[in-house]
Design a protein around this nucleic acid. Structure first.
Lengths: 117, 117
DNA sequence: GGCAAATTCAACCAATCGGTTGACCATTTC
DNA sequence: GAAATGGTCAACCGATTGGTTGAATTTGCC
């Protein structure tokens, strides 16, 4: 029972992966090109890209022998919504948060939700 | 050299800790009360609260023998800003992101910055 | 003073993480 | 068809994570 937000935040918790996302903001890239500026093995970058893909933050598409990576903003937007609700919470607490509370606390049906999407 | 965003996102990656944050949205709480709805030991919750505190997401203040926990929205806002830049990136890419790129990629001076605040 | 309550500390555990290396598999190129 | 290129896989490694239990510490109460 692992929440989708788990994997998204977990993916964002690594500076290498955040840097990769920033790089992909500019343009889609091949795995080798993503790896180029980093001082670690291609295999390590490949793993990082796997984490980002599984989190839904990027998508990968093989064309020929090169795998193209592109940002997938949907998952990021989900997490961003979660965070914005906190970031702006100072004046009003609960109003904008009732829907979220209902899902995460009472129903706890985030996973089913993700599947049904 | 561990970025502050690392610890924030890492802290958010655990569902127990997110649930704690949601609980603290409603009101400040003592450690024991935070632990009450969870099916794990008090020590485990104490550790989670330590993670949240070190990430700057909550603050803890001892009054008597009870430690009060309260949300600290600043760190959350930092991370939220990071994410919003992505969540809204579809129309324009780089404009709203140049400052961030300058810090994270070129200067890499996020830690110093946090200290100077 | 002595007991109960609130919390943390310390040691331990299994699982996961972030990295490595070397082998392997496709695909392109000569 | 052989060699180079792009990428993943598998095994391994040390460090970290999220949990446990039991002891220790500090504070409040009778």
């Amino acid at each position: 029972m692992v929440d989708k937000l788990d994997t998204v935040f977990q993916a964002l918790a690594d500076p290498t992966r955040r840097r990769i996302l920033i790089m992909l903001l500019e343009d889609d890239m091949a795995v080798t090109d993503v790896a180029e500026p980093f001082e670690m093995s291609l295999a390590a970058i490949s793993k990082h890209l796997g984490v980002l893909t599984r989190a839904g933050l990027i998508s990968q598409e093989r064309r020929g022998r090169v795998v193209w990576c592109k940002l997938d903003p949907d998952a990021l937007r989900d997490a961003s919504v979660w965070m914005q609700s906190f970031g702006q919470f100072e004046p009003i607490h609960l109003d904008q948060f009732e829907l979220f509370l209902a899902r995460e606390l009472e129903g706890n049906s985030f996973e089913e939700d993700a599947e049904n999407r």
